[in-house]
Structure formats: structure tokens, C-alpha cells
Design a protein around this nucleic acid. Structure first.
Length: 137
DNA sequence: GCCAACGTTGGC
DNA sequence: GCCAACGTTGGC
């Protein structure tokens, strides 16, 4: 099973909104690297949801429910969207500053390549972050 | 609001 | 195909 992390500005589409909607379409990606990652997602893959700009923390876990298909927000066939469904709200948001402090997470694309909005995680990285999010405080 | 890090565009 | 100029993202 693959593990991923997606970023969203809470203004644009927040985790709370995904919780409310239950399921959403991850579209609007206009970056080749991010697009390639979207294309590689498989049904059932786990996806961490990160709030950028405001919040700066991993806030929840989602799951891929629909694999890549042409992005309905454009006629340009280069771009794709996937279907995501919310799974679990983390008890404690895991702040970017905490991720940066963890020696085991220094290879995170989130840290090394700030502008990438969809990125793969190793299973270990995924579990470390989820474990932090399930702790109290 | 600033700026670093990228990505994209377009002239040559 | 190079590279300068410009635009965008996102942390601070």
C-alpha cells in the first residue's frame, strides 16, 4: 500500500470541509511532479492531509477511493484528479516544526522540497507522523 | 509583506 | 538548447 501526503490551503479546501463532505475530488494540480504522484496513487492508499500557509500541520488521514482520471476542471488532458475520502482526524495536529525536529523525517519532501503539493512518503515516515498525531498533546 | 526556492516561458 | 526574466508557492 502506498503512502502519500497532500497539501491544501485551509482557505481553499480544509480538512474540516473534507470531514463534512466525506469524500472529495483532488483536482486543480498544475505541476508535473505532483501530477505524476497523483497518477501513481492506488485505490486504498493512505494519504496524509497537510494544511499549508495557515495551520502548517498534518491534520488528518484520508484514503484514495478513485484512481487518476482526467481533471474535470480543465480540457487539458495533461492533468488528472483522484478521489479521496476522509478516514481519521488526528487527535493532535502534527506541526511542520515538529516534523523538522524529528531526525527520522529529514528526508521528507515536505521539508526538502517546500513547493511540492503531492508527495510520496515511506511507510515508516507515514507511521511516525500518524503516531505523533494520535498522541495527546 | 518579504523572500527563497522552484517552475515556466520565451528570446536568441 | 541555453538562460534571463518572470510568476507562484509557501514558510517565516
Amino acid at each position: 500500500m502506498g503512502c502519500w501526503l497532500v497539501k491544501s490551503e485551509p482557505y481553499e479546501y480544509s480538512w474540516e470541509q473534507l470531514r463534512k463532505d466525506g469524500r472529495t475530488y483532488w483536482d486543480g494540480v498544475r505541476n508535473y511532479q505532483a501530477r505524476n504522484h497523483l497518477q501513481a496513487m492506488k485505490k486504498g492508499d493512505a494519504v496524509l492531509f497537510y494544511h499549508s500557509n495557515e495551520g502548517l500541520a498534518v491534520v488528518g488521514i484520508a484514503r484514495v477511493v478513485e484512481e487518476a482520471y482526467p481533471d474535470p476542471t480543465t480540457d487539458d488532458l495533461r492533468w488528472v484528479a483522484v478521489g479521496l475520502e476522509s478516514v481519521e482526524t488526528l487527535k493532535t495536529p502534527v506541526a511542520l516544526s515538529d516534523l523538522k525536529k524529528d531526525r527520522r523525517l529529514q528526508n521528507l519532501a515536505l521539508i526538502k522540497q517546500g513547493r511540492l503539493s503531492v508527495m510520496p512518503l515511506t511507510k515508516d515516515e507515514f507511521e511516525i507522523i500518524v503516531a505523533k498525531g494520535r498522541e495527546n498533546q
